[in-house]
Amino acid sequence: MTPDDLKYSSDHEWVRVDGDTATIGITDYAQGELGDIVYVSLPATGEQVEPGSVIGELESTKSVSDLFAPVAGEVVTRNEALESSPELVNSDAYGEGWLFKVRLAEGAELDGLMDAQAYEAQLGE
Rank of each mutant, 00 (worst) to 15 (best):
2 T>D: 02
3 P>E: 09
3 P>C: 12
4 D>G: 12
6 L>C: 08
7 K>M: 10
8 Y>R: 05
11 D>F: 10
13 E>R: 06
15 V>R: 01
16 R>T: 00
17 V>M: 07
17 V>H: 03
19 G>R: 11
22 A>L: 05
23 T>D: 09
24 I>H: 09
24 I>R: 10
26 I>H: 08
26 I>D: 03
27 T>E: 05
27 T>C: 08
27 T>Y: 06
29 Y>E: 06
30 A>F: 06
31 Q>A: 05
33 E>A: 01
34 L>P: 00
34 L>M: 12
38 V>M: 00
39 Y>A: 14
41 S>Y: 13
42 L>C: 03
45 T>C: 09
46 G>C: 02
51 P>A: 12
52 G>I: 00
53 S>M: 13
53 S>R: 13
54 V>T: 15
54 V>E: 14
54 V>R: 15
54 V>Q: 13
55 I>R: 05
56 G>F: 04
57 E>H: 13
61 T>L: 13
64 V>K: 04
65 S>M: 09
66 D>C: 06
66 D>V: 02
66 D>K: 12
68 F>G: 07
68 F>Y: 15
70 P>Q: 05
73 G>W: 00
73 G>I: 03
73 G>M: 02
73 G>L: 05
74 E>V: 14
77 T>D: 14
78 R>W: 02
78 R>S: 12
79 N>I: 08
81 A>V: 10
82 L>R: 05
82 L>I: 07
84 S>D: 15
84 S>I: 06
85 S>L: 11
87 E>R: 13
87 E>L: 14
88 L>H: 02
92 D>V: 04
92 D>G: 12
94 Y>R: 12
95 G>P: 08
95 G>Y: 09
96 E>I: 04
96 E>M: 14
98 W>T: 01
98 W>Y: 14
100 F>L: 10
101 K>Y: 08
101 K>F: 02
103 R>E: 11
106 E>C: 00
106 E>S: 15
108 A>V: 04
109 E>Q: 11
109 E>H: 00
112 G>L: 11
113 L>G: 06
113 L>F: 03
116 A>P: 07
116 A>D: 11
116 A>E: 10
117 Q>W: 06
119 Y>E: 04
120 E>A: 11
121 A>D: 14
121 A>F: 03
122 Q>S: 15
122 Q>V: 10
124 G>I: 09
124 G>Q: 12
124 G>Y: 07
125 E>L: 12
125 E>S: 15
